[in-house]
Amino acid sequence: MIALLRARDDESVVMSYSACEGFPNPVVAGAAPPVEVDPDSGHEDARDAFCALPPAEQWSKCMAELQTGVNGLELKPDNWEEFRFMHCLSVQDLSADDRKGRMREAVERMNASA
């Protein structure tokens, strides 16, 4: 993977992980909200319609949505210092020698605000 990323810079790279829907998906495409938001929202038709599209069209719709920048999920040098999720930890926090303390503090802050 690293070799491929270093060899080319003419295509976008999308990363996802097992805690979210794979890519492409109807949420990223703007076709439907995440299921966990409201499973009874009536958006199943939109989800089904997206899933029925050919893979290339699914990818195209999702990439177009990502490239608008509206969702704020693009990692780039311009936003690396501010890019955080709910816990507000950075990669540097997670690789620091005192990472356990930083993680504990982040969890305490999250619990206090809940």
Results as ranks from 00 to 15, higher is better:
R47W: 11
C20K: 12
F50K: 02
A29K: 02
P55C: 04
G101W: 13
A64W: 01
L94A: 04
F83M: 06
A29F: 08
F50E: 01
W59M: 14
D98K: 11
F85M: 10
S95E: 08
P39V: 00
M63S: 04
N71Q: 10
D78E: 15
K61I: 06
R99E: 09
P24Q: 02
N25P: 11
D78Y: 10
D48F: 09
N79V: 05
E81V: 12
G42A: 06
E81L: 13
H87Y: 13
P39I: 06
D48V: 07
S41W: 12
R99W: 15
G72K: 04
A31W: 13
L94C: 04
D40K: 13
D97N: 08
A31E: 08
K100F: 14
G42E: 02
M86G: 07
V35R: 12
P34K: 03
P39T: 00
H43F: 14
F23R: 07
D38S: 01
Q67S: 09
C51T: 12
V37N: 03
M86C: 07
P54Y: 13
L73V: 12
E44Y: 08
T68I: 09
D98W: 12
D48P: 07
G22D: 14
D40C: 11
K76M: 11
E74A: 11
Q58Y: 11
P55D: 07
P77L: 03
P24D: 02
C62K: 00
V37P: 05
G72N: 01
D93H: 13
A49G: 02
Q92M: 11
E44A: 06
S95G: 00
A32M: 00
R84M: 08
S41D: 13
R84D: 01
R99K: 14
R47M: 12
G101V: 11
P24C: 05
A46P: 04
V28E: 01
C51F: 12
D48T: 10
V27W: 00
E44W: 12
M86N: 09
H87D: 15
E65W: 07
D48Y: 02
V35Y: 14
L75P: 04
S60I: 08
D97R: 12
D97C: 03
F85D: 03
L66Q: 00
